[in-house]
Write a protein that binds this DNA or RNA. Structure first.
Length: 511
RNA sequence: GCCGAUGUAGCUCAGGUGGUUAGAGCGAGGGAUUCAUAAACCCUAGGUCGGCGGUUCGACUCCGCCCAUCGGCACCA
């Protein structure tokens, strides 16, 4: 079954930071988990490269907007590699394939009567060349915050999208699909605002030129937001039915899971579905809006200078490794409705209590005993697993249910639970004491075989989170990673006699 | 300003259609043990459940007001 996972496309005017890293890492864990189940996953990320900010930044640097976009997009792509992310494509909104299709879609909206030419009137700052909302203008006492000169009343012709005409259709859609927006708190925000009523939204601008020209009226540029949203379907070639891209990728729509930050919820939960309705395209499956990282209890901001930026993140890679970073992002991050605090000490404690003490130590003690008592050879289990096959099957079921819901914490806990049970089992049965009593050798064999096999299965479930370290575990257990999940988590994958290497996956580190 | 959410142990959070001793994980302290990365295991949390007022025999759980934090308020990418 196809599945399509997307991040927002990142604005090239920014430098990569924890926000980008987080969303993309969450998507990567999810994509790897689905692939592990044998699903046909397409994972997309990319960059949003148009707009007045890019135009201005480029002018300030004395380069063309395209040159600036090229440079920053290359940086984002480089970073994806450093993070080991497994996106299947990287879309840029300045690529011809995207621009052409956006024009096609906008033309269709125009032909369908969903886009019309209208007049916008508002408070205009001549120095800044921008409009302010009534509320904002009032706050500013109708004066420019930069020059102090009075704002003027100005009008502008723009093309508008008839968002208002989709009110009923959207309400019906939300009623019929209560899980469309996740988490529930975010859905309620959307519903609340929907109740206030919808106004039409402009989809073009005329005060800058760095954008996709509006088809048939080229002094208008397609507004960046509209341009950006379409990336989700231009990457699949839906704007060129029958084209090469569509032939290969059209199957991924509408199996779309859009993972976004909460600041862009409105565009994804309301405007985007309405655009799709206007184009008579099916709705994506889900919008998941996560919250933000804060730093040491403080909101991250440029003025505070407390952004967890790329050099900081690379410092964590150097000390703890890439997998530890993924683990912290996936299990401690703000995937639900509230923000998460990023603290160095918390990172360290999570590393030690989860990865060193459990994921590292449990396989270590099991493989060490098998090496000590059986020269590393996987013992035969005369009990055929005892209670363990059922325990593992239950954990796999729990893991699958969690992955379905993008509940990364739940999926991680399902796997960790098995390892904690193995630890408890060793404590209870004391194989290290049985090893001293030759009369109980058969019992000892069963216990250690059951532990090793459960460790192997837990390791499979942890692969999406800890791909490099779990590859290391596979090597120690003489496993390969080819088979589909159902086969790999079936009891009995470790044949008796297989030589298991002692392994120590996560070194203990000083804080 | 308007709309909405949240505020429970040092930290992160569960929970209860109102009723004897308010829960988990992490951290901290102690114990026991040794297969293991001084790890796993056991015990220990005396928290005005944000504040004030109200309803009630009784509220942390209901109501009102207030305070704090967060999100949204449409062209912001």
């Amino acid at each position: 079954m196809p599945a399509y996972i997307t991040t927002p496309i990142y604005y090239v005017n920014d430098r990569p930071h924890i926000g980008h890293a987080y969303t993309t890492t969450v998507c990567d864990v999810w994509a790897r988990a689905m692939r592990l189940r044998g699903e046909d996953v397409f994972f997309l990320t990319g960059t949003d490269e148009h707009g007045v900010k890019v135009e201005k930044s480029a002018a300030a640097k004395g380069v063309t907007p395209q040159a600036l976009a090229d440079e920053n997009a290359a940086e984002f792509q480089r970073v994806l590699k450093v993070f080991g992310l497994t996106n299947d494509d990287f879309i840029r909104t300045t690529e011809p394939r995207h621009e052409k299709q956006v024009q096609h879609f906008v033309k269709r909206l125009l032909d369908a009567g969903s886009v019309y030419l209208g007049t916008f009137e508002g408070w205009y700052d001549e120095g800044q060349e921008e409009y302010y909302t009534e509320t904002r203008a009032k706050e500013l006492d109708y004066k420019s915050p930069i020059s102090g000169r009075p704002l003027t009343r100005a009008t502008e012709q723009n093309y508008y999208f008839k968002l208002s005409s989709f009110q009923k259709q959207l309400e019906d859609f939300f009623a019929a699909n209560p899980d469309f927006v996740q988490p529930a708190a975010r859905r309620n925000e959307v519903l609340g605002r929907l109740r206030d009523g919808l106004q039409d939204v402009p989809v073009t601008r005329t005060n800058f030129t760095w954008g996709i020209p509006f088809p048939g009226d080229e002094k208008h540029v397609i507004y960046v937001w509209i341009d950006a949203l379409f990336n989700y379907i231009t990457a699949l070639g839906l704007g060129e039915p029958g084209g090469a891209l569509a032939t290969e990728r059209a199957k991924y729509w509408p199996a779309a899971y859009h993972v976004i930050g909460k600041e862009i919820l409105w565009f994804h939960a309301v405007i985007w579905p309405a655009l799709l309705m206007a184009l008579e395209l099916p709705m994506p499956r889900r919008i998941h809006a996560h919250s933000f990282w804060i730093a040491d209890g403080q909101k991250m901001s440029k003025s505070m200078g407390n952004f967890v930026d790329l050099p900081t993140i690379e410092g964590y890679f150097a000390k703890y490794g890439l997998d530890a970073w993924r683990w912290y992002m996936a299990t401690q991050g703000p995937l639900q409705a509230s923000d998460s605090d990023f603290r160095a000490q918390h990172f360290h404690e999570t590393y030690t209590s989860d990865l060193v003490n459990v994921v590292g130590n449990c396989p270590s003690r099991v493989t060490a005993m098998i090496n000590k008592y059986f020269e590393g050879k996987m013992p035969a289990d005369s009990q055929a697993g005892g209670e363990w096959p059922a325990k593992c099957a239950a954990a796999v079921a729990q893991w699958n249910a969690a992955i379905d819901e993008l509940d990364l914490v739940g999926a991680a806990q399902a796997a960790m639970g098995l390892l904690r049970e193995v630890d408890a089992f060793i404590h209870r049965t004391e194989p290290f004491k049985l090893a001293k009593d030759p009369a109980r050798a058969d019992e000892l064999c069963s216990i250690l075989a059951q532990c090793a096999e459960t460790v192997r299965i837990a390791g499979v479930l942890l692969e999406p989170f800890l791909p490099a370290k779990m590859a290391g575990l596979r090597v120690a257990l003489k496993q390969d990673d080819g088979a589909p999940l159902a086969k790999r988590v079936a009891w009995g994958g470790l044949a008796a006699g297989t030589v298991l290497d002692k392994c120590a996956l996560f070194p203990r580190l000083e804080a």
